[in-house]
Structures are given as structure tokens and as C-alpha cells.
Design a binder for these strands. Structure first.
Lengths: 129, 129
DNA sequence: ATCGAAAATAATAATCATTACTATTTTGAG
DNA sequence: CTCAAAATAGTAATGATTATTATTTTCGAT
């Protein structure tokens, strides 16, 4: 049975009010200002719990730590190959991909994750100079 | 300047002849039969080197170790949420996704990675019993 | 063919992200 | 209120990968 915790509420609130796709470490640094004694393990445990319950999304880039997102509307992410920043991509959810993939596949496909790679606006401008 | 190494050749050959998307550890266990003294670090270094040179692909599932693939034709992968197995998905490369994503995006998108999730044929059959 | 610098290796230590453990504190149903 | 279940802080441990270092291998120049 799930019990309330002030720490978890603060973690969730941080994600709800910051759409920057923070890592566990970033969440930790920030929630620490309200709960100076909070431990990194508590942040991880609650991020996992919230992700399992479907209240937040976990974004796993190929390398480096996972990022978290409280925006539950189906959307895609962009990962900058230069600075590692995670940005939202404004495009329709491509549900048909699962159907196309299923055609020649003998198992069950329930969903897909697509990540886009390239240069974010900032890194792109820097490169141009 | 790149210099030849027997160990690297053996690693590449293993990937060329086994399309099972092995992890570094699996490659290590197998190449060890030809080079009993090879170290895991050598396997990692060469897998990274081959991936950087575009001779093999790295597949990063959200959790667990990376997998490697010598099949360079653009294709998608399926990850079984039950057993973790990585399988090839037989479908066209969806190059248009990058264009769609670019429309409302101010940076540069060079490519995308899509991973499909669900139950592999084997796990799906097991579940049905 | 052999010399020697650059590259690769084996062995091992270190790092990073994350999870596990444990004693203590907090929560909330009865 | 009571008290068991859940959550916590603090810390140790884990798994995957990278870094370090002394030694060996490769290969172009002599």
C-alpha cells in the first residue's frame, strides 16, 4: 500500500514545474533546497516508483544518466549529440509504426520509443561561427 | 593511425558470423576461445573503435548492457520486455520521420533510433499457456 | 631484415549510475 | 492513540564501462 511522503511530493512537483527533462542528480540538487537531508537513493526510489505508476516518463539516452519527464502526452525527444540536452519534438505520435513493425513479426509489439539525434538550436548556432 | 590486431579481427568476425546482437560480455566469452588471454577491456575498446568507424552498430536498451550488431543496413530493433532479447524488425527505414521532426525544430536532425517493445515470439507463446 | 615510434594489449584500478541494505522515522487504518 | 507497513537517510554494494600502466605488437622507414 502506497503511503504519502513529503519528499515524493516535492520530487513530483519539481518535475511538474520544470519541463527540462532533468536527471536524478539534478532533481536531487533541487529538492535538496526544500529537504536538505534527502538522500540520492530516495530520489531514485521515488523516480522509479512514479515511473512504474505511469506518473512520469523515463528517458534513457544511449549514454549517460536517465532523464525524467512529467509530460505524459505521447511525444518524442531530441538528444543533442554535442551537449547532451534533451528537447521535446513537436510532432504527432506515429502509432502506425507499431502496425508496420508487427506485419512481419511473430511476437507482440506494444509500443515504440523513437529518439532523434543531431544538433540543438544552440549548438547549431555555435558551430556556424 | 590504426594498426591491425588479431583480437580486433576476431571480434569483428564473431559479430559478422553471429547476428544475435551480443553484448560485450558475450563477445568476450566467445573470442576468449581463440584468445584465452584477451581481456574484457580489449573487447570494449575494439567494440567502441569499430562503432566509431561505423563498422558495427551499438544498440543501447534502456537498461542493461549495450548490444552490438554488424548488420549495417538501416533497420530497426525489437526488445523483449520479458527476456531482454534483441531481434531485428523487418520493415522499411522510415526516413520521413526525420523530416517530420525537423518541421517544427530549430536545430539539425541527422538521424533517429526507434526501438520496438513487447513480447518476443518465444515469451508470447509461454504466456499463452 | 631490423629499428623504433606509435598503437594495441592484458591486467588491474577507478568511475559512473544505480540499486540494495539497515537502522530509524513517518504514515495512516483500525 | 496504537502499531504495522511504508518511507527515509546514510551507506555499502553492484554492474557496466572507462582509465591507467607496463609490456607487447605492428609496420613504415632505414
Amino acid at each position: 500500500m502506497l503511503k504519502y511522503s513529503r519528499q515524493r511530493e516535492s520530487i513530483k512537483k519539481y518535475l511538474d514545474t520544470h519541463r527540462t527533462h532533468p536527471t536524478a542528480e539534478i532533481v536531487y540538487q533541487n529538492v535538496k533546497q526544500e529537504f536538505p537531508n534527502i538522500s540520492l537513493g530516495t530520489v531514485y526510489r521515488n523516480l522509479n516508483l512514479l515511473a512504474e505508476r505511469g506518473e512520469i516518463l523515463r528517458i534513457s539516452p544511449g549514454n549517460g544518466p536517465d532523464h525524467y519527464d512529467a509530460d505524459l502526452t505521447p511525444h518524442y525527444h531530441f538528444l543533442c549529440t554535442e551537449c547532451g540536452q534533451v528537447l521535446d519534438i513537436d510532432m504527432e505520435h506515429q502509432a502506425q509504426l507499431d502496425d508496420i513493425a508487427m506485419k512481419q513479426f511473430d511476437g507482440i509489439i506494444t509500443n515504440h520509443v523513437t529518439q532523434f539525434f543531431g544538433l540543438c538550436p544552440k549548438c547549431n548556432n555555435t558551430k556556424m561561427n
